[in-house]
Design a protein around this nucleic acid. Structure first.
Lengths: 398, 398
DNA sequence: CTGAGTTAGTTCACAATCTAAATTAACTAA
DNA sequence: TTAGTTAATTTAGATTGTGAACTAACTCAG
């Protein structure tokens, strides 16, 4: 957020203000834009002309534009299909890539094995994959606004550094800069949860929310806290780590090495572990199997999902009491767990949270199943798109 | 925060930017101000001239201003003693008032019984008390920047409405407007915790923090969540209500009417209750008595304080995992509980919070004991002072 | 004690931006 | 065809910030 500056800072604010409104309330006329932004029609004309010249906006001559005795409005919309973004999801053994337009619609996707973890090699593989991607999509690199990279771990998103990414064995790797140099495209990096939250904020269920919480349930459990439209990262970038709330002093061992973390009871590997402890005869069971068992009224499966769901609901209730968010979106592979998990979660949350804070709180589980690509990669792309909308500037050749 | 506007919005931003820096790093020269704000020396000259004319700033010709072969800098400081604020703390039977300068130094204080709760009567009593206060302090009402009112309950601070203040029996009372009209002074209202946080943010331990948590332990237990220098209020103004985290399904009855809230185990009345359950022979015991017993190694007293402290620490650890604040300040009458309570709290918090988030986290207990006035009233005054510094404007005759 | 060197702060011309008011554009309907 | 209406642009004027030049105030070496 801008707090000082010269007159051009004003322009920046007004550009982003107009972009934000267009993103939220679709194609509207310059006059409506003036009303909604509080700017004068003259300024709106000026700013929109600039943005149209940069191909960030287009005029949409919708025939249906009615008139009640006056000149018809010319609708303005964001030009979602004039620029493109690349999203990369880095997993331990997988490199997933999507090419999207500015609405995050996936135009092309590719997946490769990731066999080496050496940052330089990974950078080269990324660069090659990006090239393949935009060639296949027949998109000019000049129309790419940048690359977003999502990976789990501790990320310094502001400086583009993977501070500690245990799955890749990375510490203090300036991966964004490395990718930028190899690809000649601006790059951004963030962890899974924040990438997911960015996508939800831009075009997802949180499009109209100023403050919300995004919860990702996958191999880990974490949240992104969005305060006033901005991700709250905290002093060490550790905000949202409620998955490491300690619920038992000598409980199950968590991926973080400590014992008794909430995460050790509510993620997919944890659920399988908890189920197998009670039903070792189901060795080799997968999450879809477990969900199916629960749906088939297997009491053990139901109980495992129910217990974990209720436990998660309890800790979400703590988040709700502390933040009073406008809504909560749930994503990650855990979204597959379905109602057997999420209904107990909702009930527990609603009954435990402070009066009124949860009764009308939307709790949205984002579907995750997709044969072609994961929303993780789409979320990564949103890091680049987010930058364009938040600054109102396309940093080509940065 | 400003997100759009005309060139005068720039001035506003630059005024507040300069005020913020002066408030944090004391008297400094215009040149240093230019460096710290990023503004040009010319602009700083202009803005400071304006603020000096409005008596918000003064030049301080400190004799000690050294020189190393050049013109000596003229130090600029906020003129803390040219304007004054009134702070009011409304309790069930008490009306406490302080008159402070802009540094929140209390110049005069008065207390009266509050016998009636009718909003109109209360407003009249407030107006009369304010008049007494500034007459006694020999301050002209023209030099008063406004009145801050603190009271517990659900407050709509933005619109100055006491949405629900159970101790006074108020619902949807537009008390700020009423007081403004009667006193002809701008008025602001907020709950205890937020008032306390405002004071800590302006001149207290959180002066240099961008994101922190203020915890108030008094008759209730609540927190203020400060994100990027602004209080996060949440969708319904319910943010920070972690005192109503449910810790037992059928636990002790809380002041909110529900059962098993954290607040029912960690506030002063709760501690006395818990102690008396085990040691009914101590009927009539007060909090200072309990603390003294603990200090005298009374195992029961120690155990009660320790258990409650550890419990609070656990839930603070959840807040820390979620927010990763830069620091936490504790205030309210509960600050008297001393180390017998706060040491177990610290230990519990530090051992439960996620790795690294609490190890270097300052945990500051603000002394509360004072014969003359409570920090509550001072905090209330800070609501008015806060407004002056955050907007850079003194709204006299508003 | 004088003048070169240094640092602080101000003045002024110029550029960027916004707004209000006037103007042009495009349409409806009597 | 013309008056009325709504949308959008143009233009003149105001505000603000910046850079460069300038003034102010000081140190110190000779």
């Amino acid at each position: 957020m801008i707090v000082k500056g010269d007159p051009s800072a004003l322009r920046t604010m007004n550009r982003t203000s107009i972009l934000r409104i267009l993103r939220r309330v679709g194609p509207i006329s310059r006059t409506q834009l003036a009303e909604l932004t509080g700017l004068s029609p003259a300024s709106v004309s000026g700013v929109t002309a600039e943005l149209i010249a940069e191909k960030l906006l287009v005029e949409q001559s919708i025939g249906e534009a009615g008139s009640s005795g006056g000149r018809r409005p010319i609708f303005i919309n964001i030009d979602y299909s004039a620029h493109f973004a690349i999203g990369l999801k880095l997993s331990e053994h997988r490199l997933e890539a999507v090419l999207t337009d500015l609405s995050l619609k996936v135009l092309t996707h590719l997946t490769e094995d990731l066999t080496e973890h050496d940052p330089i090699r990974v950078t080269m593989q990324i660069a090659a994959l990006c090239k393949k991607l935009y060639k296949r999509a027949k998109v000019s690199p000049d129309d790419l606004i940048g690359i977003g990279i999502g990976l789990s771990g501790v990320i310094d998103a502001v400086n583009g550094i993977a501070v500690h990414a245990p799955l890749l064995g990375w510490k203090q790797i300036k991966i964004a800069e490395m990718v930028s140099q190899k690809t000649n495209l601006p790059s951004w990096i963030d962890n899974d949860v924040n990438s997911f939250a960015a996508a939800e904020r831009l075009f997802g269920h949180a499009k109209h929310a100023n403050s919300f919480i995004a919860v990702a349930i996958g191999r880990g459990l974490g949240a992104a806290i969005i305060c006033n439209g901005e991700i709250h990262r905290g002093r060490d970038g550790g905000a949202g780590e409620f998955g490491h709330n300690k619920i038992l002093l000598n409980g199950r061992t968590c991926s973080c090495g400590r014992q008794g973390c909430l995460e050790a009871y509510t993620t997919e590997p944890a659920l399988l572990g908890l189920f197998l402890e009670r039903f070792p005869e189901h060795r080799g069971i997968s999450i879809p199997d477990l969900v199916q068992l629960a749906n088939a009224q297997h009491q053990g499966a139901i109980s495992v999902l129910e217990t974990a769901g209720a436990l998660l609901g309890q800790h979400i209730s703590y988040l709700v009491n502390a933040f009073n968010p406008e809504l909560i979106v749930f994503g990650g592979e855990g979204a597959e767990l379905g109602d057997a998990f999420f209904e107990p979660m909702r009930q527990s949350l609603r009954s435990l949270a402070f009066d009124g804070l949860a009764t009308e709180l939307p709790l949205i589980v984002v579907p995750w199943a997709n044969d072609d690509f994961t929303p993780w990669a789409q979320g990564a792309a949103s890091l680049a798109v987010q930058h364009a909308f938040d600054t109102g500037v396309l940093l080509k050749n940065a």
